[in-house]
Amino acid sequence: MSFLTLAAAAGAAPAAAPAGAAWQPIIMLVIFGLIFYFMLIRPQSKRAKEHKSMIEAIQKGDEVVTIGGIVGKVVKIKDQFVVVALSDDNQIIVQKHAVSATLPKGTIENVYSNN
C-alpha cells in the first residue's frame, strides 16, 4: 500500500524546470526555420527565377519542349502565348509558362534523322 501512496505523491508533484531552458525552444525554431529556408524556399525561388528568364529570352526559331513533352519550333510570340510548329503543317498555341525548356539548335533534325 505504501508503494501506491508514493506513486500518487510523485505523480502529483510537478517537476521543476531546469534553469535556462526557456530559450532552447526558440533556438530550435530558428534552426528549423533556417533548414526550411535553405532546403526548400531558396532552391525553389532560384528555379522560378531561372524559368522566368528563360521564358523572357524565347525568340522566334528557338526549339522548345512544353510541359507536356511536345517538341517544336517557335513560329510566333505573342504577349502570353507562343505558337509552336510541330511540323510544316501543324502548329499549336501554348502559354509561355507551359514551355519547360529550350533545346539546342538542330535537336529536332537530329531526332528525325535518327528514326
Results as ranks from 00 to 15, higher is better:
G11V: 05
G68C: 10
P25Q: 08
N115R: 04
K105E: 10
A17G: 06
A57K: 14
F32R: 00
I93L: 13
I108P: 01
T5R: 14
T66I: 14
A8P: 00
L86Y: 13
I108Q: 03
V111Q: 03
F32E: 04
H51T: 09
K105H: 06
N115A: 08
V71Q: 14
K52A: 15
V83N: 03
A16Y: 02
F81D: 02
E56Q: 15
M39T: 15
I70L: 15
F38W: 15
G68W: 10
K60D: 01
K78W: 03
Q80L: 05
E56Y: 11
L103K: 06
E109T: 14
A17Q: 09
A9V: 11
D79S: 11
V75R: 00
H97W: 07
V74L: 13
I70K: 08
L40N: 11
A8V: 07
S45T: 01
L29T: 01
V74N: 14
G33R: 00
I35N: 03
W23P: 01
G72W: 03
S53K: 15
R42D: 06
P25H: 08
D79R: 09
T5L: 11
G33N: 05
N114Y: 10
A57H: 09
A8N: 13
A85F: 00
A48E: 12
Q24F: 03
Q59G: 13
A17F: 09
E50D: 07
F38H: 11
Y112S: 11
A98I: 00
A16P: 01
K52D: 12
A15M: 06
L103D: 03
L86N: 12
P14M: 05
I26E: 10
K49G: 04
T107D: 04
T102A: 06
I27Y: 04
K96T: 09
D62E: 01
P104F: 01
V94Y: 00
A12F: 13
H97F: 09
S113A: 15
L6C: 09
F36D: 14
V74M: 11
S2K: 07
L4F: 13
R47K: 13
G11K: 06
I41R: 11
I93R: 08
A9K: 12
A16I: 05
A15Y: 02
Y112G: 03
H51F: 09
H97A: 10
F38K: 04
V30H: 04
N110E: 15
I26W: 12
S45A: 02
I108V: 10
Q44K: 11
E50C: 00
M39Q: 14
P43I: 09
K78F: 06
S100Q: 07
P104K: 05
D89V: 12
I108Y: 05
I41G: 04
I77M: 13
A21Y: 02
V84H: 03
Q91P: 00
I108E: 03
A7Q: 13
T107H: 03
S100N: 06
T102C: 08
I55D: 06
D62A: 01
V94G: 02
M28I: 12
L40K: 10
Q80D: 14
I27F: 07
A57M: 10
D88G: 09
I55R: 15
